[in-house]
Design a protein around this nucleic acid. Structure first.
Length: 446
RNA sequence: GUGGGUGUAGCUCAGCUGGUAGAGCGCUGCGUUGUGGUCGCAGAUGUCGCGGGUUCAAGUCCCGUCACUCACCCCA
């Protein structure tokens, strides 16, 4: 059989790289759980009518079909989910009677989209979602909470600096109403194109498509120009002299979110009030989020979300929600493929117990057993090759220590420094940073 | 879906107007006789993506096809 080739859009990692991904997932999980978010996993397949709701037909859904199906034209009516929000909404409705509200959950799973792959854009990818969902009415402070939890989680990741950009649809809609725009939704849709089109093109569209005057269009662009890492955006908006009740609400809410995230600001994470942020999806009703990675703006946002006052509805009860999703594959794979993110070893083993000869395998197994009993990952050499070979075996896998159980006693060698010292398998412990593989993150070359 | 680019050793790639397939890294062995890495020496490895055509002769030219990749679109 000829060597298989990769399938475009279905990234696979080598063990050391996968270890880095797992470390990122672990940090996200830890933070989410510290804040009391419960984990769930939803099935990968959903009925097509669930997936295609809201006219999201352009999502390129992968459909399930049995190979041995009698009628080769028929599918199962099931498709793979293309995000975690739609399955979550369905899950909430299905289990509404068994869930406690407000329901705070996180979900880290794969999703599939049949689109043409590109850098940071895959057909199979992992994302991490947190959402809070409530019955009937969801208090605003959950917007702040969700932002703060994600901000804290992102600020711990060993990645290039991430920024959480935040805006409020209430703020911009109130502003547009305040200047007399008849159709704020259209203005939002056009403003959202600012990152792709030049400002004067957007201004022209505002005049032709949203029926604004040149002066009104200029005001909209002035608003979109405001972007601050703190709450100083309030004064800048006020300086534009527009008055509207909804604008006041939006300003207050956005202030609360930015202040709520401020404690998480560090050299790897910043929150940013970005008044150009709109998000094209029309079901967002208040706070909106997008996440960007510094130096990787070309791959677009690496996460996003917001508030939707009707996440789910069974006709009788409406379930509003607010959430953010972080694209793990989108963020990590570009770094990994550039060699900027991996980990210190390809195996968990911290110690390779050398093997003097086959007769002493029992003795070496015994050393490994004692180490493992104390939580130190250890493996025994596969064969009794020359010690040089056994050390090389460890070196190539990044295993930092080789243990020798000789006639004269036990010795352990740190193969990075070459230091070899007498040691007792019942008590010897490596430094904590050597216990597990460590993520190694390099800066991108300029 | 539309348009461009690229397929040669495990990896990164060179190979001119057609003439017996190369480099670096990696790999294997030896020096070093049971303590690796450095260094030195020696060695192995290819259906030149696949199919067809032109030609005395094709990695090279032509046609087709597949895969990968980039951009548009959209988004995590």
């Amino acid at each position: 059989m000829t060597r298989p080739t990769p399938v475009s859009g279905f990234p696979e990692l080598l063990p050391a790289q996968r270890n880095a991904e797992l470390a990122v997932i672990e940090r996200l999980r830890t933070t989410f759980e510290l804040h009391g978010f419960a984990n769930i996993e939803t099935r990968v397949a959903e009925p097509l009518d669930v997936l295609l709701r809201k006219g999201e037909i352009d999502k390129e859904v992968y459909v399930l079909r049995r190979l041995q199906s009698d009628d080769d034209a028929s599918d199962s009516g099931l498709g793979l989910h293309y995000d975690l929000t739609v399955p979550f909404a369905r899950y909430v409705l299905e289990n509404a009677g068994k869930l406690e509200f407000p329901f705070r959950r996180y979900q880290i799973q794969k999703a599939w989209r049949g689109e043409r792959p590109q850098e940071g854009r895959f057909r199979e990818f992992t994302q991490a979602d947190i959402d809070v969902v409530m019955k009937d009415e969801l208090p605003f402070h959950f917007d702040v909470e969700v932002a703060r939890v994600m901000a804290e989680a992102l600020s711990t990741l060993p990645l290039p600096p991430l920024s959480l950009r935040v805006n409020s649809r209430k703020l911009i809609e109130g502003f547009y109403r305040g200047i007399g725009a008849a159709d704020p939704a259209t203005v939002i849709r056009i403003i959202d194109k600012l990152d792709k089109l030049a400002a004067d093109q957007v201004a022209a569209m505002l005049v032709t498509d949203a029926a604004l005057s040149d002066e009104q269009a200029k005001q909209c662009l002035a608003l979109a120009d405001i972007s601050t890492p703190d709450t100083s955006f309030v004064a800048q908006v006020r300086a534009l002299g527009v008055e509207h009740e909804l604008l006041d609400t939006g300003l207050a809410e956005l202030t609360a979110v930015v202040e709520g995230c401020a404690p998480a600001n560090n050299d790897r994470f910043t929150v940013q009030a970005s008044l150009s942020l709109a998000r094209g999806l029309d079901y967002y009703t208040g706070t909106v989020f997008e996440i960007y990675m510094q130096g990787y703006e070309s791959i677009g946002s690496v996460g996003g979300g917001g508030r939707y006052d009707a996440l789910a509805s069974d006709g009788r009860t409406t379930y509003p929600g607010v959430g953010i999703s972080f694209g793990i594959s989108r963020t990590l794979v570009p770094l990994i493929s550039r060699g900027l993110l991996t980990s210190t070893r390809s195996v968990p083993s911290a110690v390779l117990v050398a093997l003097a000869d086959e007769e002493s395998r029992g003795a070496s197994d015994n050393v490994a057993r004692q180490l493992r009993a104390r939580g130190i990952p250890a493996e025994v050499a596969a064969s009794a090759q020359k010690y040089g070979r056994q050390i090389r075996y460890a070196d190539r896998r990044g295993i930092p220590y080789v243990w020798f159980a000789g006639d004269t006693g036990h010795e352990v060698k740190d193969i990075r420094s070459g230091d070899q010292v007498a040691a007792d398998p019942a008590t010897w412990t490596p430094p904590s940073e050597d216990l597990r593989p460590q993520v190694t993150s390099k800066e991108q070359d300029q």
